[in-house]
Simulated scan of single mutants.
Amino acid sequence: MEIMTIGSLQSSYPSPLTCSASLANPPRHPHEDFHGPRRPPLRSLQALGLGQAENPGALPELTQLLTMPSAEIRRLAASAIGKLAGFGADPNSAVRALVPVALRDPHPKTQQYALKALKAYGSAANSHLHDLDNLTANERAKHYVRRAARSAATAIREARRLAEAGAIHRCSQCQRPVSEEELDRRRSAFQPVFCDGCFDEVFLERRNFGTAVELNKTIVAQAGTLAPSDGERLIADWLSAHNIAYRYDERYRILSGHAVRPDLYLPEFELYIEYWGT
């Protein structure tokens, strides 16, 4: 027979004093503290304050906040960097900080705010127009992200046009000033700036090289792609076997307006493959 003492019996139940104390002080909601609703995190307040201070010297600190785990802090930091565009913030540094967030942040709202901020820096973001165009065409992105990317690309192109309106462009070969017509022809072909005379020489040389490349494509991949080597054929066949779309040996404008011609381009991953082998 088990014997229970009065003390142990009493300790099994809450005392009246404990019950009254619990009723007088109910558990707090997780979003409340002793002063009412939870205040914004200090980092968020920091980002807000730096943006409102209109001080371009805050750019390095805001750049650090763009790396924080909190999407809200990154969003506020991106917005603040955009506001500093009108107060003398270094455009190249700002663009370098914003681009990874604008193009690849996992939170669409944060991405949208970074795109809006990037738009404020105009022609300084010119080298990223290709990436913005790809994001605009990406059907898996949120509609408001695609809209922000399109708006940023439009503004950047217009800023570039205005910046170049009074600029003197020279042939990269002979340094002679080129006309607007010559400049337009080079841009339409994604070429560096050449006068017509130098372009004819360069074009002939490149055309001969391109012809030689095409003549060397004698190996057929499974998808019908013609490749110049077994190594490139194996890569193409592996991509086809894994249902990965690719484009082979095409030109893409990706860096500062220069045309590059990688062996393979994977549009789904925005990845370029250059095979060095036989």
Rank of each mutant, 00 (worst) to 15 (best):
M4I: 02
I6L: 14
I6Q: 15
G7H: 06
Q10E: 14
Q10F: 10
S12E: 13
P16H: 11
C19G: 09
S20N: 14
L23G: 08
P26F: 01
P27M: 01
E32P: 15
F34D: 12
G36N: 08
P37K: 13
R38G: 14
R38Y: 09
L45N: 11
A47D: 06
A47S: 05
E54S: 10
L59P: 15
Q64D: 10
Q64W: 03
L66Q: 13
A78R: 11
A78I: 01
S79G: 14
A80D: 09
G82H: 09
K83N: 04
V95L: 02
V95M: 01
A97M: 08
L98T: 04
A102M: 02
R104G: 09
D105N: 11
H107F: 04
K109A: 00
Y113V: 00
K116D: 12
A117V: 03
L118M: 04
S123Q: 12
A125H: 12
A125R: 08
N126C: 07
N126F: 04
S127D: 13
S127F: 10
L129F: 03
N134Q: 12
N138Q: 13
K142R: 15
K142F: 03
Y144R: 06
R146C: 05
A152P: 15
A155W: 09
I156G: 08
R157W: 06
R161D: 10
L162R: 13
H169G: 07
H169N: 13
R176D: 04
S179I: 06
S188F: 02
A189Y: 08
A189V: 06
V193Q: 07
G197Q: 10
E205N: 07
F209Q: 14
F209Y: 11
A212E: 03
V213C: 12
E214S: 05
E214R: 12
L215C: 03
I219N: 07
G224V: 03
T225S: 07
A227H: 14
D230L: 10
G231D: 02
S240M: 12
H242P: 15
I244V: 06
E250C: 13
R253F: 02
S256G: 05
H258E: 12
V260Q: 10
L264P: 11
Y265N: 06
E268Y: 02
